[in-house]
Design a protein around this nucleic acid. Structure first.
Lengths: 252, 252
DNA sequence: ACAGCCCGAACTGCATGCAATTGCAGCGCC
DNA sequence: GGCGCTGCAATTGCATGCAGTTCGGGCTGT
């Protein structure tokens, strides 16, 4: 039951803008929309049966979350975080999630523990599904934890940064074996239930750290980064090196 | 030369929406707009010389940052964070800023240190100004620090959460003596320059913690939610307070 | 006199229209 | 053949218009 239909405090609830936001968010983190994919306002509006105004508003929200890049007078695109930004996001995420488990250790109710276990079971069952889904589930485990702190702000930040990490994982990571992640999730639940603050903070730290380092070992964006943007700063002094213009691989 | 000309990283640069956002943000954290103040789209549009569409978009962004509360079909109001939310915000802020100084310790350039010192000097000069301004400057010191990490994500989160804390300080704190804050800022700069990671993390922690505890000891509005708004007309026992419900803050 | 109802004003939700900017394809020039 | 230019189509930036909802004040019934 992932019903959690509560969107509550944070400005978004049931209007069309939020619906589009959620849909796009999910599409992005499941890689249905790759980083760099174009998101023209009218196409979105047409797709979701709303006007450009609404699509535009949704894009604005997603841009505020860092999932979408918005350049003036240009088509919005799915964000393409740099490797450094990915590292930064993970650093922040580690701190935030340590805070989460610190607040949660020993304070979980039985139903909450059951809910967590159920979620991990779901992760387990999804192991033979697509990679995108298992990544999403793993991410949602962390968001579920954040929810249990009853701190809307913490939920928002953890969600955002987790989504960003999801996005970067899709960029810089190859098929990851979710097995160990699941085991680590179980270990975290156990330590939380036992109330061992230090243990659980350490677990969470190493869990995220391992994901980060395992995923982000390759600072060479094999593809997908639009080189033109990368090279923009070098345009001034790029006299000696001949910069060939690559054949725009990502065309539609 | 604070010409931090970074456009486009964080979606907001030079369009009218961002202008309005910045203006409102500042008005809010300087308490020109009190928590609970109404922000009708038309009035904002009129005030800033734009249409409702733009004002609406700006409100959306500010709502995403938690500075504005947006209820469907209702006039937007400046957010009124509960006391618990204030605590949560400070908790998060402490972690984030510890991360900031951890990354910064020993890595600051001379110009950066000079810039920081200049800012604190400005804080010093503003001591005889209004409280709102000195609070804003103190907040901006922390944001300036975050900027120096060169991590856009960190900048965004620190800024947001710092603004939120600013907002709550205006709610739950009485006139605070900024003197010690200034000294603590100087101490932090010194420790950063010396590169003493542990020292500076401890300093930052206690700095923020002291601000938080000094400020948040009084949950005077029992729950702080929009209950406060409801009770405003019946402001008998809340006598000492200046709760004029709304002199139509932004009315032509 | 008081409570409840009703109606108008105010406001938001959303779509559409128009001007301005950008992307791009084709064309001419070197 | 490659490079730069030009004009058109695509797309955004923004304002305005209309419909639906909420708020508040006055009126009526008791």
């Amino acid at each position: 039951m992932a019903a959690r239909a509560d969107t509550s405090k944070t400005a978004e609830s049931s209007d069309k803008v939020s619906v589009i936001c959620r849909a796009l968010r999910r599409a992005i983190i499941e890689q249905a929309l790759e980083p760099g994919a174009k998101l023209p306002e009218d196409s979105l509006g047409e797709r979701f049966g709303v006007s450009r105004t609404i699509a535009r508003h949704a894009l604005g929200q997603l841009a505020a979350e860092g999932l979408v890049e918005l350049r003036r007078n240009r088509i919005a695109v799915v964000a393409t975080p740099s490797w450094q930004e990915a590292r930064d996001a993970f650093d922040i995420r580690i701190e935030l999630e340590r805070l989460v488990v610190r607040q949660l250790a020993g304070k979980l109710t039985k139903p909450q523990i059951a809910e967590l276990n159920a979620h991990v079971d779901a992760e387990d069952r999804a192991r033979d599904g697509t990679d995108a889904v298992s990544i999403r589930l793993a991410t949602e485990f962390h968001i579920l934890l954040a929810h249990m702190t009853n701190s809307p702000i913490l939920v928002r930040y953890v969600s955002e940064v987790a989504y960003r990490c999801c996005l970067t994982l899709s960029l810089y990571s190859r098929p990851h074996s979710s097995e160990c992640a699941i085991n680590e999730h179980r270990a975290i639940i156990a330590a939380l239930a036992k109330g061992d603050v230090d243990k659980v903070m350490g677990l969470m730290h190493s869990h995220l750290d391992s994901v980060a380092t395992r995923a982000l070992v390759t600072p060479s964006p094999q593809r997908g980064r639009d080189l033109l943007d990368i090279l923009a700063p070098y345009a001034d002094e790029a006299s000696g090196e001949k910069v060939v213009k690559l054949p725009k691989a990502v065309r539609r």
